[in-house]
């Protein structure tokens, strides 16, 4: 049966070709899938790793978040831990390389995955989060991992949901002789709240995502009124420096001012548009306020914020309200 044999031969050749194609290893481009984390000293015993610009994508691996580092006699306290297992490993390596001492404690400011998922490489009893944050991580942790897998792909390999084993509460804690004030606030991440860490010795506030610096704030769980109250708390505290959750370190309270200006303009604009009768689609299509056009992600976050906040504001306008 020559015809059949011919088919068989071609099938074998095809199979071989497939095997060869499958065997050729995918060569990663130079520098891809490697987090380059460089702690930079910003004060006496306080450091930060500045995240890059942008939104989560397959080029940046989600390394858009700032990490705080506080030196103690025995080791290092981390404020937040990055988006993935690989990020956590790179963070651990960066700490070892820079300080030659281990991570003593990881303090998670809030629920969002870019801040928490890297914590899984540290012993859970050293990873601390507030009760509300721990509850939401237990409930929605897997969904958060799935979300980031979709956005970041292979960067997320091996990442699972993280369950902190240590409780973060408001008050002052002592880590190896270093006094840290833990402040409860909220407004960025919903009912679970946002937690800030003040290093008393250097008067440095690690503000988490209550403060964004030259990068548009994100609002998926935002309560703008509560968020502004948190900014007022920071202003009253007037620390020597404020480490934002995203974006570069700026002098004094500049990033706090920036965040407040954005939130005020965002909310006022959304109310104005809803009061003028714009549909959600029309509001979405408006250009971003030129005062903020130079900020990273200004246009994209405006669009996201219309999605998050505009339906609620429209509903209030349609029930006869005229302002926040």
């Amino acid at each position: 049966m020559p015809a059949l044999r011919g088919t068989l031969v071609w099938r074998l050749i095809g199979l071989l070709a497939l095997l060869v194609a499958g065997w050729v290893p995918e060569v990663p481009a130079e520098g891809s899938r490697t987090y380059r984390l460089e702690p930079v000293a910003v004060g006496d015993g306080v450091w930060m790793i500045e995240g890059g610009p942008g939104h989560f994508d397959r080029d940046n691996g989600g390394a858009i978040v700032n990490i705080g580092l506080i030196e103690t006699d025995q080791g290092v306290v981390l404020v937040d831990a990055g988006p993935s297992r690989a990020y956590g490993e790179a963070l651990q390596a960066a700490v070892r390389r820079t300080f030659g001492r281990p991570v003593q404690r990881v303090l998670l400011t809030h629920r969002h995955p870019d801040h928490v998922l890297g914590a899984q490489v540290f012993p859970s009893e050293r990873v601390c989060a507030a009760a509300g944050t721990r509850a939401v991580l237990a409930e929605e942790g897997q969904a958060m991992v799935d979300d980031l897998f979709r956005l970041l792909g292979d960067w997320m390999r091996g990442t699972r949901a993280v369950q902190p084993g240590c409780s973060l509460e408001a008050g002052t804690i002592d880590v190896d002789g270093r006094q840290l004030r833990i402040l409860a606030a909220g407004g960025h991440s919903g009912a679970e709240g946002d937690w800030m860490v003040l290093d008393v010795a250097s008067d440095t506030l690690f503000a988490g995502d209550l403060v964004f610096s030259r990068r548009a704030p994100t609002t998926p769980h935002a309560d703008l009124r509560r968020w502004r109250q948190a900014l007022t708390v920071i202003e009253a505290l007037a620390p020597a420096r404020v480490i934002p959750g995203h974006g570069p370190l700026q002098p004094g309270l500049k990033a706090v001012d920036d965040t407040r200006r954005w939130l005020d303009a965002l909310e006022a604009g959304l109310w104005q548009n809803a009061a003028a009768g714009l549909s959600m689609g029309e509001a979405l299509a408006l250009p971003v306020d030129p005062a903020f056009a130079a900020w990273d992600q200004a246009g994209a976050e405006y669009v996201r914020s219309v999605n998050h906040l505009y339906p609620g504001i429209m509903a209030r306008v349609l029930k006869g309200e005229s302002g926040p």
């Binding site: 549909s279 959600m280 689609g281 509001a283 669009v303 996201r304 999605n307 339906p311």
Partner: peptide, 9 residues
């Protein structure tokens, strides 16, 4: 952004 609420005008 939210698959349950996509605005279309």
């Amino acid at each position: 952004e939210d698959a349950t609420r996509v605005p279309v005008h």
